[in-house]
Design a protein around this nucleic acid. Structure first.
Lengths: 122, 122, 122, 122
DNA sequence: GTGGTCTAGACCACG
DNA sequence: GTGGTCTAGACCACT
């Protein structure tokens, strides 16, 4: 977990935030559990502390964690609710894409086929 | 057509290129038809000619248009082939999202339901 | 002969000049034979007379034709010598490319194979 | 390395991109190694940063490098694969020229002789 | 008139 | 500090 891919076009702070969110979803961190400190994470990942700080700020704005001055950062939501929010986001994106595909003339059977194929993903 | 949204995160040259591609797909411009000149488009949209130029360069690298010095820019591909390429891109994105949804525990029926709903889009 | 390809990246005056040179090489026009007038060619090809004029100027600078004020343009060299000059140019380009290929590690057998294959050209 | 020739017909950004590609091919920069920054190169070569930027964008579209915002530009491909792509391009050009030479009456022995001569290059 | 390149200078996002 | 985008204005080649 928490692998940073420098080749990825996504900014690093987003990758870090996403990785932590993943861990919450998969139960690595439970609700109200304390996360590693900014400095510790920065050292482990060899990343600028400012970047970690920004990832935490993003997670806090999403309601995934909360910070207590002088104590640290803590998980605010349980994995299930975070997972539900994520699925809602993905659902919205899927709907938008499906809408665009329909506007280009793709019919529902074709679109459904795309999302259901288990193999052959690029 | 060709509305620029300055609040959009996508750069302007990309919006312009996408807009022109849309028009090609929808048959507004046929194959080998001449597009408005760089300066004309720049004036119409109140955008710097360099930015329009960049949009055209992007479209040329994609093979959607070709440019002839001293004459102008022309559509190189018919709408159908451009549409097919676009659908392929959307298909890849849909598959990636569906894969992510499955990794979060969504089953195929749920995912298929999302892409098939006609109403309730964001 | 003398087909203009607007999609070609080469400027039109160059295509016109090349086309006329081709005709000289292939004996369509003999030495001292008169070429069509600028206006006539411009009308036939639906091209701006200035562009034809420029093509003629290019051919004159190459020594392929000569112009007589008030009379017209005439072929100055016989096909054979024009062909020889062209082959010399091609030879120089081939040598330059072969040199570049060698600098990248291609050996002579490989390079010779490229230029000798009759089929499979892209 | 990386000499800019202002009298060359090729645009500067293309010369810069080609020069960097050369260095990758010759192992001056290894895979994932960081390139000089846009501003630094611009200062060294006395070229506008925008022009360098454009060269980097070209290389990225070719898949030779990848860029990370806030960090810099990095070599993405190893020299061998870049070299292979280049050789393929040269091969195509050689074949086209050989075809043209044959159309003018040159036989294979003559053409092969051109590409194999070690001396007498222009 | 057209497209293509280059410079200069500015602003933003990211680390 | 880094790359990415945009504007403004200039010059060139081509039609």
């Amino acid at each position: 977990m928490l692998n940073i891919d420098y080749r990825d076009a996504r900014p690093i702070y987003e990758q870090v935030a996403g990785g932590i969110e993943d861990m919450v979803v998969h139960g690595v961190y439970a609700a109200d559990e304390q996360l590693p400190s900014v400095r510790q994470l920065a050292a482990e990942l060899s990343i600028n502390p400012n970047t970690i700080q920004r990832a935490f700020a993003l997670l806090e704005s999403k309601g995934v964690i909360y910070s207590v001055k002088g104590r640290g950062n803590f998980v605010s939501a349980d994995g299930a609710s975070v997972r539900d929010r994520r699925l809602a986001e993905i659902s919205a994106q899927l709907r938008a894409l499906a809408k665009a595909a329909r506007a280009l003339g793709a019919d529902d059977r074709l679109i459904a086929g795309w999302v259901l194929e288990e193999e052959g993903n690029t």
